[in-house]
Simulated assay, not measured.
Amino acid sequence: MPALNRPRTLALCVAGAAILLLNTPPALADGSHNQAPPPPPKKNTSGKTDGNGNLSASAGVVYDKSNNGQGSHAGPIAPQGNWTPPPCWYAPKYTPAQLKAYLEPIWGAESTGYEWDAKQRKHYADGDAKDGDYKDFNKAKTGKGYWWDSYVDDTRIGEPGALACDKPPFWVDKGDPPPADVPQAITPEILSQLAYAEIRVPDTKVTLAPGGATKVNLPTWAWLDKGDFKPVSVTASVPVLNISATTTATPVSLKIEPGTADAELYPASGECAINGDGSIGTPYANGDADKTPPCGLTYLRASGNNGPYKLKATITWKINWTGTGGAGGTLPTGTFGTTQDVTVDEIQAVNR
Results as ranks from 00 to 15, higher is better:
Gly326Gln: 03
Gly323Ser: 09
Pro294Leu: 11
Thr324Arg: 07
Ser233Glu: 01
Tyr284Lys: 05
Thr324Glu: 07
Cys295Phe: 10
Thr247Asp: 02
Val234Lys: 00
Asp262His: 10
Lys312Ala: 15
Asp290His: 05
Thr316Pro: 03
Tyr284Ile: 00
Asn306His: 12
Gly337Ser: 13
Arg301His: 13
Asp262Thr: 03
Val252Lys: 13
Leu297Ile: 06
Ile280Tyr: 00
Pro267Ile: 14
Gly287Thr: 08
Cys272Ala: 14
Val238Leu: 11
Gly278Asn: 07
Ala302Asn: 05
Cys272Asn: 12
Gly270Leu: 11
Gly278Ser: 06
Thr248Gln: 02
Lys255Trp: 03
Thr333Leu: 04
Val234Met: 00
Gly281Tyr: 12
Gly337Trp: 11
Leu311Cys: 08
Ile280Val: 15
Ser269Tyr: 13
Glu264Trp: 01
Thr322Arg: 05
Glu257Gln: 13
Tyr266Gln: 09
Ala236Glu: 04
Asn275Pro: 05
Ala327Thr: 15
Glu257His: 00
Glu271Gln: 11
Pro308Gln: 09
Ile319Phe: 02
Cys295Val: 08
Gly337Asn: 13
Glu257Leu: 03
Ile256Gln: 04
Trp321Gly: 09
Ala313His: 06
Ala236Val: 01
Gly296Thr: 12
Thr322Pro: 02
Leu241Ile: 00
Gly287Ala: 04
Pro267Trp: 12
Ala263Pro: 01
Ala245Ile: 03
Ala313Glu: 11
Ile274Phe: 07
Thr314Lys: 08
Ala327Ile: 04
Pro258Arg: 02
Gly270Ile: 10
Ala268Val: 12
Gly326Met: 02
Ala245Tyr: 01
Ile280Met: 03
Gly287Arg: 08
Pro239Ile: 08
Ser269Ala: 12
Thr248Tyr: 02
Gly328Leu: 04
Leu331Val: 06
Ile280Trp: 04
Gly276Ile: 10
Val252Gln: 14
Pro258Met: 03
Gly287Gln: 09
Ala245Met: 07
Gly323Gln: 09
Glu257Trp: 00
Ser269Thr: 15
Pro308Gly: 07
Ile256Ala: 05
Ala289Ser: 13
Ser279Cys: 02
Glu271Leu: 12
Gly270Ser: 12
Glu257Asn: 14
Thr324Leu: 06
Lys291Val: 04
Thr292Ile: 15
Thr330Arg: 10
Ser244Gly: 09
